[in-house]
Simulated assay, not measured.
Amino acid sequence: MDENVINALTELVDFDQEELLLFMKRLKRRNVRKNEFILSTGDICKSMVIINRGGLRYFTITEKGEQSHWFAFEGEWLGDYESFLTRQPSASFIQALEDTEIYCLSYDDMQELYSLGARFERFGRLIAESLFISIGRSRYDLANLSAEERYLNLIKAYPKILKRIQIQHVATYLGIHPQSLSRIRRNIAGRKL
């Protein structure tokens, strides 16, 4: 298993070698091609995934069009956590932004890990808290920050994002049209000169 996955697991909780092996045995490797969906609306999210290599986009489609809610890259977890926990159909999509290698943790395997001890439960709690904070921050930013401020925050978090994903996906994350994003980028570049 790649270092990205091991680092992501041990970054949150100091698992000992035996615990780490127990965790890794439950992760199922999967390769996903660029533009392939690992979750579609109406499906139940059966696994939370950790990205070893590549990137994923979490989005919905409304009457206004696509709205990207989150991007995840190496060492990050992603899934529709509400659907995963409630076992109810998702209203969202998760799509590979590039050829991606993921490791999947099923609901049953997660529950089994929780039964093995406090460190596994702590890991689950920390992941849930991280997702909760990320969603809250994203909602706050969308409601309170300008598109330019949201763009600057995004490229600060993911400096190479524009080299990895299409500009229209960044625009849907910011809640603007690609032309508006181009104008924002020109304005920022003009100020740096």
Rank of each mutant, 00 (worst) to 15 (best):
M1Y: 10
E3T: 10
N7E: 12
A8G: 13
T10V: 10
E11S: 13
L12V: 07
F15H: 00
F15P: 01
D16M: 00
E18S: 13
E19C: 01
E19A: 04
E19H: 04
L21H: 13
F23E: 01
R26M: 12
R26Q: 14
R29D: 09
R29G: 09
R29E: 14
N31E: 11
N31F: 12
V32T: 06
N35I: 11
N35M: 11
F37Y: 15
F37N: 14
I38P: 05
L39F: 02
L39S: 05
S40H: 07
T41N: 14
T41M: 09
D43N: 11
D43Y: 07
K46L: 10
K46N: 14
S47G: 03
S47P: 04
M48G: 06
M48F: 10
I51Y: 04
R53I: 10
G54N: 11
G55D: 02
L56H: 06
F59R: 02
I61T: 11
Q67S: 09
Q67K: 14
W70S: 12
F73A: 07
E74W: 10
G75H: 07
W77L: 00
W77C: 00
G79Q: 04
D80R: 01
D80Q: 02
Y81R: 09
E82H: 08
F84K: 02
F84V: 01
F84W: 02
S90Q: 04
S90V: 01
A91H: 07
A91R: 12
I94W: 06
Q95P: 03
Q95N: 07
L97R: 07
L97V: 02
L97C: 08
T100S: 14
T100W: 06
I102D: 01
I102C: 03
C104S: 15
C104Q: 15
L105E: 04
Y107N: 09
D109E: 05
D109Q: 07
Y114T: 00
S115F: 03
G117F: 03
R119G: 02
R119Q: 05
R119N: 15
F120K: 01
R122S: 08
R122A: 07
R125V: 00
I127S: 00
F132P: 06
G136T: 11
Y140R: 10
A143D: 14
S146Y: 05
A147V: 06
L154F: 02
K160Q: 12
L162Y: 09
L162Q: 15
L162K: 12
K163N: 14
K163A: 14
R164L: 02
R164H: 03
I165S: 07
Q166I: 03
Q166V: 00
I167S: 12
Q168R: 13
Q168Y: 15
A171P: 02
T172Y: 01
G175H: 04
Q179E: 15
S180H: 13
S180L: 04
L181S: 03
S182W: 11
I184C: 03
I184N: 04
R186N: 11
R186I: 13
I188K: 05
A189I: 11
R191S: 15
K192C: 10
L193P: 14
